[in-house]
Computed example of a mutant assay.
Amino acid sequence: MNLRSLRYFAAISQAKSITKAAEKLHIAQPAVSRQIQNLEEEIGVRLMNRSRAGIKLTGAGEFLLQRVLPLLVELDQAKETLSQQANAEVQDLVIGLTTGEGLTVASTLISGWNQQFPAAKIRIFEGLAPTIYAGLKDGSIDIGVVPEPLPYTDIWTKPLFEEPIVFIAPKEDVDSGMPFRSLDNLDVPSALSLPIILPSSPNPLRTSIGEIADIYHVTLNVALELDSMSIIKDLVRRGNAYAFTTYAHLTNELEHDLLRVVEMPKQVFKRNISLFGLLQNDHLAPDSPAVAFIEELILNTVKDGRWPGAKLL
């Protein structure tokens, strides 16, 4: 007899319907029915009768319900008390975000954190992945949300989801000396051979594009190294070169039709977004309440479709 089957039994008893109980529990109906069947087999008695009119408990079912409901209430109260105690121990948090991640999730993190941990403050730091790592090392940042790969050996990482890397180009010919190029049927070697602007190493995007170039045996045509995605996008828009980025960085450009965006083969042009922190920071281990809550908030933005192009791992 497990807690899950007892919760399902109580939910069905109160809803008087397996279908309604399954909807309330956000569980598929067959899974709920299977749990009740297993419970009845384990106890050895029928707990409910099913008919078109709904569910009616047997005498044994009524007996069990009277004892299960107070137990579930006490367990929920104990869980809430323990959660409050854990939350009370949570300290202020400084979280590092890269630009695209910051634009997408900062508001969600701030509002969610303030509601869950009103006694602890949250502060957002925006910067490149190497800068966020440096902040972890000097103690000015607690955890980071950054794209992988990360070249550091003294960190833990929690992969959250993957997002596609896309190719961006100017909308039309401009006074830059670079002719307008049709991007219809653009293949990977051609895209990698065009003059592109990339961040400098060890930026994760630079690492990813370099690894893809190695796969296709192409020498990158790096027109410029620049560690600012906002300036990279502006230079591309003005026709100075091409670039690679992700949809999280292109919200404004897509809304105002400022750039051409070409999707590349997603099985190759993708990257993981991960939480990361220092191994030596015991206060913010991967399973700590603060980290678990930040993870939940970010994953919810993916589930709700608020992180453009993202896919859960």
Rank of each mutant, 00 (worst) to 15 (best):
S274D: 13
L71K: 09
T219Y: 06
I132Y: 02
E163V: 09
H26S: 14
R206S: 13
T108L: 14
L160N: 01
R237K: 08
M48P: 05
D92T: 03
T19E: 12
T207L: 15
A241V: 09
I122H: 00
A28T: 12
T251A: 09
T19W: 10
N221F: 01
L47G: 02
D287S: 05
T58D: 06
V174E: 10
G139V: 01
K121Q: 12
S17Y: 02
V291I: 04
L205Q: 10
G127D: 04
D184G: 14
A134S: 09
I141S: 00
T219F: 05
S288Y: 02
I212L: 08
T153K: 13
T81Q: 14
F161D: 07
D257M: 08
L3I: 13
K79G: 11
A60D: 14
E296T: 07
E89V: 14
G112V: 04
V236D: 05
A28F: 03
L93M: 02
F276E: 04
P265I: 00
V302E: 12
V222K: 06
E42R: 13
L297H: 00
V68A: 08
F180R: 08
R237M: 08
K56D: 15
E255Y: 14
L259E: 10
H256S: 06
I232C: 09
Q66C: 15
W307V: 14
D154L: 09
G100V: 03
V188Y: 00
L254D: 14
I294Y: 00
I165A: 03
P159D: 02
L75C: 12
P289F: 14
R271K: 09
E263C: 02
Y242H: 08
P159S: 01
L39I: 07
A292S: 05
V261N: 04
K233R: 11
W156P: 07
G139L: 01
G44H: 13
E295T: 05
L183Y: 06
T19I: 11
T81P: 09
D175L: 12
Q77E: 15
A88K: 12
M178S: 10
A248P: 09
L275Y: 02
L254V: 11
V218W: 04
A191S: 13
I197L: 03
G102F: 07
V188F: 01
V145M: 02
P199I: 07
Q37Y: 13
V166Q: 07
K24Q: 14
T246I: 10
E126V: 11
R123H: 05
I196E: 03
Q29C: 15
A120G: 04
P170G: 06
I95C: 00
S182G: 01
V73S: 12
V145E: 01
T108D: 15
K266P: 06
R206K: 08
H26K: 14
G135K: 02
A169Y: 09
L194Y: 07
I273M: 12
V174R: 15
L69S: 06
L160D: 01
G102T: 05
L97E: 03
T246L: 15
I197T: 04
A31Y: 12
L47R: 00
